[in-house]
């Protein structure tokens, strides 16, 4: 099985949310549903520098959709089997004709990927644009990014090109679900487990 995944360049990302909007447009999503969410993690403190105090502040963005995890938390809890991991590309997709809308997947996912649509009565989530991928295209979010901060490819290629980092604050430890992502951290990025910062845009995610 080829496992596809996303590359997220947090050193380039300006938090412009074009990826989120192009996805919303392509997938025709309601206002309260975001397959891709941009988390702004910010914080800072003061350091004594002789007789003065210097601020050390940080703020950076992480554009997170579904990480199509190797061990997804959403799949084992699903009672109908609607939430499944595709054998051909490793993408985690919800079968909208089977889903009963019990929201178990949303409760379990530590990335907020599965989202319930009250209008549709079932769960919805990023499907990695698998139809586009099958045609040799990249997901809409990747192609729309004006900073070229996103990429999508088989995981071996991403590891070869960009390394192996799959966790920085405020993401959970990668050991929980094995997210299929590679992150290039922002120069101010805090390690996973950090609690010195806070989510600066809670109403946007």
């Amino acid at each position: 099985m080829t496992q596809y995944g996303f590359y997220i360049d947090s050193s380039k990302c300006t938090g412009c949310k074009t990826c989120q909007l192009s996805c919303k447009d392509y997938k025709d999503l309601d206002v309260d549903i975001n397959y891709r969410r941009i988390y702004e993690y910010a914080g800072g403190s003061w350091q004594a520098d002789g007789d003065t105090w210097q601020p050390s502040i940080f703020s950076y963005y992480l554009s997170i959709a579904c990480n199509h995890c190797a061990a997804p938390a959403c799949v084992p809890v699903c009672p109908s089997g609607a939430m499944h991991k595709r054998s051909e590309d490793g993408l985690v997709v919800v079968d909208t004709d089977t889903c009963i809308g019990c929201k178990s997947c949303a409760m379990a996912c530590p990335y907020g990927a599965p989202q319930y649509s009250a209008r549709k009565g079932h769960m919805t989530k990023c499907d990695g644009c698998y139809e586009r991928v099958a045609e040799g295209l990249k997901p809409v979010c990747v192609e729309s990014c004006p900073l070229r901060a996103l990429d999508f490819a088989p995981m071996e290629e991403l590891h070869e090109r960009y390394g192996n980092l799959a966790e920085v604050a405020p993401l959970p430890s990668a050991s929980l679900t094995g997210p299929s992502i590679v992150i290039k951290p922002n120069r101010n990025a805090r390690p996973v487990g950090d609690t010195t910062g806070s989510l600066a845009n809670p109403k946007e995610v």
């Binding site: 084992p76 699903c78 009672p79 009963i100 929201k103």
Partner: peptide
């Protein structure tokens, strides 16, 4: 009433043995 699609409630049994929610129902 918790379900978004109550008419599909029987689907909750499809993963009997695999999902604890299926087992519970």
């Amino acid at each position: 009433l918790h379900l978004g699609s109550p008419l599909r409630a029987p689907n909750a049994l499809l993963r009997l043995g695999g999902s604890w929610l299926s087992n519970e129902i």
